[in-house]
């Protein structure tokens, strides 16, 4: 008897739901907007989980790289007249370069020191964006032209969904390749990894560059979609939201972090009338998750499903063997 592989059933129906969402939500453009923002956060949370959960670099500068993508593209358009698309591409590269510098500066810093340094970087960037009124628009923010010549949200929806799927696919490939293997060995024990020949400098810096570029790219697209970016996106509270999404989803799971981000973004919108109490509950959930479910709330479910299928496969294999043996006799 052939058993259903629930992994594919779930992935398939989630994808089908995601692709058909614009039709299902055709009367509710606001919820389509919520979905776009949710995907944006999903990209940020999963790329942060690659940096922190896989490579072990607890950086608080992820929103800063996102902002570099957003402001970079906006400013290039304003001063050099680049198109949004060119701007996004260039500012993604710029985010990667800044990621390179931060990665190199952080090589010797560990744990709380790394966290503090990246907070400082992020804060200096925020203060600068606030202070240089003439260039950045200061606290009022910077207006960005739309990326797509359309007033509909649907194309943006598919764009952000594609971006999420492509970046998740890329990060999964990376995590499964030797890059991921080295990232995790560095997270576990840097000195032992070096003794095993792992070029720790290269891979630590690389983890920063790659995740900074993903964040920068997402930031650029999001900013051109919204049409405005303000330095407020860099306050620590914003970074904590991304961290909370990743932690609640599962800090070591790219998919867990992405799903966590989407679920949280939607529930924050659904519970809108609760105001700030939503975030109070959310902060409490973050602390309780850390204390009592270190692997997050979503990741263990994914893991259980994968394990279940793996066991099924083993049992089926055995049954088949037994059957063949029976036929052979």
């Amino acid at each position: 008897m052939k058993h259903v592989d629930w992994r594919w059933v779930l992935t398939g129906s989630a994808l089908a739901l995601a692709v058909s969402a614009p039709f299902l939500l055709s009367g509710y453009p606001y919820w389509l907007h919520v979905a776009i923002v949710a995907y944006f956060y999903a990209i940020l949370a999963s790329s942060w989980s690659l940096l922190a959960g896989h490579a072990g670099q607890f950086s608080f500068a992820h929103m800063a790289f996102m902002a570099i993508g957003a402001y970079g593209s906006g400013l290039m358009g304003k001063y050099w007249g680049t198109s949004p698309l060119t701007g996004i591409v260039l500012s993604t590269v710029l985010a990667g370069l800044v990621g390179l510098i931060i990665g190199v500066l952080c090589l010797r810093l560990k744990g709380a020191y790394l966290a503090l340094f990246t907070i400082a970087f992020s804060e200096v960037l925020r203060l600068t964006l606030n202070a240089e009124l003439d260039i950045t628009g200061g606290p009022n923010g910077l207006d960005l032209p739309p990326l797509l010549a359309t007033t509909s949200r649907v194309p943006y929806y598919y764009l952000m969904l594609t971006l999420l799927l492509v970046s998740l696919g890329f990060m999964y490939w990376l995590a499964g390749s030797r890059f991921g293997l080295f990232f995790r060995s560095i997270r576990e024990d840097e000195e032992a990894a070096a003794a095993m020949g792992v070029h720790i400098v290269r891979y630590k810096v690389l983890a920063f560059v790659i995740t900074a570029m993903i964040a920068g790219l997402a930031g650029g697209v999001e900013a051109h979609y919204i049409g405005l970016i303000t330095p407020n996106i860099l306050i620590l509270g914003q970074m904590s939201i991304v961290i909370a999404m990743a932690v609640i989803g599962g800090i070591e799971s790219l998919l867990g972090a992405a799903i966590g981000a989407i679920l949280i973004q939607f529930s924050l919108e659904l519970l809108r009338e609760l105001g700030n109490w939503r975030l109070v509950a959310f902060g409490l959930l973050l602390m309780l998750t850390l204390r009592f479910a270190r692997n997050g709330l979503i990741y263990p479910l994914i893991e259980r499903l994968v394990l279940y299928q793996a066991r099924r496969a083993v049992i089926e294999g055995r049954e088949q063997k037994a059957k063949q043996a029976g036929e052979g006799a």
Binding site: S240, A244, W277, L279, V280, G283, L286, R294
Partner: peptide, 25 residues
């Protein structure tokens, strides 16, 4: 606690987040 360094950073950060929004609320 496994990975104590990471836990300490995140859980105190979580407390800050919680207290901040609690006050706001």
């Amino acid at each position: 606690v496994e990975r104590p360094g990471e836990y300490a950073i995140l859980v105190t950060f979580g407390l800050g987040f919680f207290l901040q929004y609690l006050t706001l609320a």
